[in-house]
């Protein structure tokens, strides 16, 4: 992994964005975990009028999962559900070695090479699986 990507991941692991427990009822709680490892993250999501107003998270997870969650949150706050889904799909495409738009990813580009380590791909995708479930629940 090149130095810049490593730095982005480490920075987000050591100083994760919006990592705090939330008690407010304005937030919906979604738990996301990897059954085969020990990553376990709670996402707290506040959506109003189809706009993601805020996301916070808490839990125990490895450096990849933690930084991926931090980066995802930075990128999704303020987005409409539709735009959020576009960001998420683009990130999935990158991890699945499909065509994707680098310019949409911002810091998410740090996981560009994660597909080479199949066991860690699940770590990077962990928060995305959680947020997709939350968005689905919101829409239903």
């Amino acid at each position: 992994m090149d130095e810049l990507k490593r730095e982005i991941i480490l920075e987000n692991f050591q100083n994760p964005y919006n990592k705090e427990e939330v008690k407010s009822e304005d937030y919906k709680l979604v738990n996301t975990r990897n059954p085969n490892c020990i990553d376990n993250i709670d996402l707290y999501i506040k959506i109003e009028d189809n706009i993601i107003k805020d996301i916070k998270f808490n839990g125990e997870a490895c450096a990849i999962s933690t930084s991926s969650t931090s980066i995802m949150i930075k990128n999704l706050i303020g987005k409409s559900i539709e735009d959020a889904k576009r960001y998420i799909q683009n990130f999935y495409n990158m991890c699945d070695e499909l065509e994707y738009d680098e310019d949409l990813l911002n810091e998410g580009i740090a996981f560009q090479d994660i597909y080479k380590q199949s066991n860690r791909k699940n770590c990077a995708l962990l928060p995305y699986r959680g947020i997709l479930k939350a968005l689905e629940d919101y829409e239903n």
Binding site: C37, I38, D39, A61, C62, A63, I64
Partner: peptide, 22 residues
């Protein structure tokens, strides 16, 4: 300050097999 699984990934790069987790 380092998650146990990250340490085991690191050790694995040197072919050291230890268990991480619960």
């Amino acid at each position: 300050g380092i998650f146990s699984e990250d340490v085991s990934y690191y050790l694995n790069k040197y072919n050291v097999c230890v268990r991480a987790g619960n």
